[in-house]
Amino acid sequence: MLFRRIYQFLIVYFIGLIFLLLIKAVLSLSDYVIPGVGLITETFGQVLNTYFFDVMNTMSVTVLGQCISIAMAFGVGIAGRKSSWMGSFIKVTAYNIQAYPIVALAPIIFILLGDGFISRLLIASMICYFPLLLSVLGIMATPVEDIEHFYIITGRMRWQLEVKIRAFENLSKITTVISGSATLAMAGTIVAEFIAANAGIGYSIRVALYQSDLAKILVALFMIGIIISIYQGCLETLGEQIKTRWSVSKGGNTI
């Protein structure tokens, strides 16, 4: 899973790079517009180390932001799963807030919280949170009738059991959404850094953009891609392990 993610990324990255170099060759563009192989390699050597730590910095915010957004999505998803007035109020509110692009809200966040770690974390969580919420709400609001019926008719149903049944029945969907949301959390953090932070790879990209340095941006994209692939691969492996552990019986059977 992990290696597949990495080589899939490498294939896409190098196809993109070859495409750019082809355009450069066909239109005989200078290194300023599209850097040549030499310049890209040279830039790789110069900034790889710095960018690695920048991406790791971004990654730390991403992971934390994702954890927060998962907790928030499950909290709201569980609270909003009922077809009661409160449930539908929570659902409608969540859907409506989602309509605002976070990037548009970002300046307000920066003015209120400054341009440090908390703002980055909040924006990353918010960008990652809404798609997660939609999935969690969808899963939590859909009854698994053939399992739940017994507990309802015998008066044994508790909200914890209901959540457990629905989460277990949709485990694959949940792990896919969570690992998919890692990309969103990363994108959110990068956007936040690009707009207003003093650290992270998003900030480095902004600096490179100021200097119209596409070579640096290509290195940044490479580092982001590799590290997000590793992170996603780890999440998927973890998801598989959780699924196996939760669904394997003592006798060794699997679902």
Partner: peptide
């Protein structure tokens, strides 16, 4: 360079950086 514009406005640092990277 891409032929989308015929004239433009750029700051000196942009011009110098571009010259450094072979732009005409």
């Amino acid at each position: 360079e891409l032929g989308h514009s015929d004239f433009g406005v750029a700051s000196a640092d942009q011009v110098i950086r571009a010259l450094d990277k072979g732009a005409k």
